[in-house]
Each structure stands twice: as C-alpha cells, then as structure tokens.
C-alpha cells in the first residue's frame, strides 16, 4: 500500500519526528512522551474520580484535626478566642429588663442591640443610650447619657425643684434613666467613668414582635 501523503506535523503519533535511529545513542532529554495518549474519560468516570479525591481529602483533613489531641486543642482554642473577639468588639443583642428605662424599654422581654465598638464612650453623644458596668456592683446597666466630660448637668431630679449642678469631670459621663422614679443612676453614684461604658444601643426589639432603631432625641432638633 503506497503511503498516503500527510503534512509532517500530523505524523507524531505514528512515527515521532525526533525518534533517533535504532543503533544510535539515545538522547538525554526527551521532549515528547512515549506513552500512548490516554483516552478521554467519560463524564461518569470523571465524577467518580472527583468524588474519591474529595472523600480522601476530607478524610485526611479530619485526621489532620482530630488525629492529634494537641492539634484539636489548638483548633478549639483558636475558635473560642476568635469568637470571644467577635463578642467583645462586634454588635450583639442582649436581653434587658427592669423599670428604670420606661417607657423607652419595657419592664421585661426586651432586647437591646449593642454596638460594642463604642466601648469607653468612643463616639458617644449626649442623648445616646449606653450599656455600662454599674460602678457600685458587678452588674451591667443601660441608661441615657445626659453629660459628657466638660458638660454641665443638674444633679437633682428636675421635678423636686433642686438646683444643684456640677460640671462633669474629665473622663466621666452623667447617666440618667428615662424613668426618673425607678432609676438608680448618676444621681445615686455620681459621674460614671467612661472606662465602664461598654457600648452604645443601636436598637430596641422584642423578638418576633417589634424592632425599633434608637434615635438620639437631641440630634433631631
């Protein structure tokens, strides 16, 4: 059978162009593979290969975390610490209760969305609601800011007719509850150090019932 004419660049599969003659020394570097080309995989075969590869990887990564007790411990530690960081500096809801902030916050069942990036009174203005550590015990409270450092505030309750005033000392704020009758606040324990302020209240909500953004009444005017 006479050879059919072919252009040279099609011939590599049958007779590679660079294959040396049988009796000459073999070349050190081979540019083309001698292996026969693998036939293309069927889709089902590919999927099977992919799934085995993934299960293998999952198995090894599971053993990576669980195989060594120290590694599992380190992972748990990192996870907890990261969660702590988020809880400490993020925005989180907290349940609030008590009659001191009536009628802004109901006696029970309300939640406050607290922005903890406002800790230590960063960016807090007069009229905002803040969460703070109560200076005379170990609990936390929620009150309205009526004075920041250098402001002038009334020490007495307005309705009593008292006229004693002070200037809020540096690094402190003046916190008063909205329900003057039932609030234990700066009238009792004096100016609160800003170091005890934990965050600013963004919203008050009752799950599945109501949601209300807290507006600063002083900024609207």
């Amino acid at each position: 059978m006479p050879p059919r004419f072919r252009p040279s660049f099609f011939t590599s599969s049958t007779r590679p162009l660079l294959t040396p003659k049988p009796n000459s020394t073999p070349l050190q570097i081979r540019l083309t593979s001698n292996k026969p080309p693998t036939p293309p995989l069927l889709l089902s075969q590919r999927l099977h290969a992919l799934s085995t590869r993934l299960t293998n990887r999952a198995r090894t990564s599971a053993s990576h975390f669980l195989g060594h007790p120290l590694r599992a411990l380190a992972f748990a530690l990192k996870f907890l610490a990261f969660g702590h960081l988020l809880m400490e500096y993020g925005i989180w809801p907290r349940a609030v209760a008590g009659p001191s902030m009536l009628p802004t916050i109901a006696v029970a069942g309300s939640w406050a969305l607290i922005d903890f990036t406002h800790r230590f009174g960063r960016g807090v203005q007069v009229g905002d609601l803040v969460a703070y550590h109560i200076p005379i015990n170990t609990q936390s409270g929620l009150k309205r800011v009526l004075g920041m450092p250098g402001d002038y505030v009334l020490v007495d309750t307005p309705e009593t007719g008292g006229e004693t005033m002070i200037q809020v000392p540096p690094g402190h704020c003046w916190l008063i509850g909205d329900n003057l009758d039932a609030s234990r606040d700066s009238r009792l324990f004096g100016p609160v150090p800003l170091g005890l302020v934990r965050g600013k209240i963004l919203a008050i909500f009752q799950p599945f019932r109501s949601f209300e953004w807290v507006k600063n009444p002083m900024l609207a005017q």
């Binding site: 009659p99 009536l102 009628p103 006696v107 009229g127 309205r144 009526l146 307005p158 309705e159 008063i176 909205d178 329900n179 003057l180 009758d181 039932a182 009444p217 002083m218 005017q221």
Partner: peptide, 15 residues
C-alpha cells in the same frame, strides 16, 4: 441652641 429631652415618671399599676 436650645434643645429639649423628654424623660418620664412612670407608674406601673400592678408590677
């Protein structure tokens, strides 16, 4: 500038 802030004296009838 004059600003006003409302606070309250609340009475819960039956706490």
């Amino acid at each position: 500038q004059l600003l006003s802030l409302l606070q309250y004296e609340c009475h819960v009838d039956r706490p």
